[in-house]
Design a protein around this nucleic acid. Structure first.
Length: 103
DNA sequence: TGAATGACAAATT
DNA sequence: TAATTTGCCATTC
């Protein structure tokens, strides 16, 4: 699973494995996908998920424990997380000590 | 080929 | 805490 698949495919696979009620950072996904410093690329991939995708994109936040989206998009991601039991402040803050996913 | 692009990260102030 | 700065890199054009 590393020369045989594209970076994008590896990211999709990893994201699909994040359990309900937990979050993980862009950088961590990049690391698991084999490119430790491609966090920004992970963000771009999540932004362009194919229509109808069931990937839990809302479980990915930044290394500061905050939602990176703004405006209406931030509200959507926050609501999706709240629905899973993850406590998120109005500004998008999440307690990584409680909700960070560890393999 | 090469420059531009991001839902970033880490360090600094 | 928030705002800046600098570094990064797989894609896209």
């Amino acid at each position: 699973m590393h020369q045989s698949s594209s970076f994008q495919e590896r990211v999709w696979l990893i994201v699909s494995a994040i359990p309900c009620g937990y979050v993980i950072s862009y950088g961590e996904i990049a690391r698991l996908a084999g490119s430790p410093r491609a966090a920004r690329q992970v963000a771009k991939i999540l932004k362009h998920l194919p229509n109808g995708s069931t990937l839990p994109w809302h479980r990915i936040i930044n290394s500061q424990g905050k939602i990176s989206l703004k405006g209406e998009d931030l509200v959507r991601q926050r609501n999706a997380l709240l629905a899973e039991g993850v406590v998120v402040t109005t500004s998008g803050r999440i307690d990584l000590k409680l909700y960070r996913w560890r393999q």
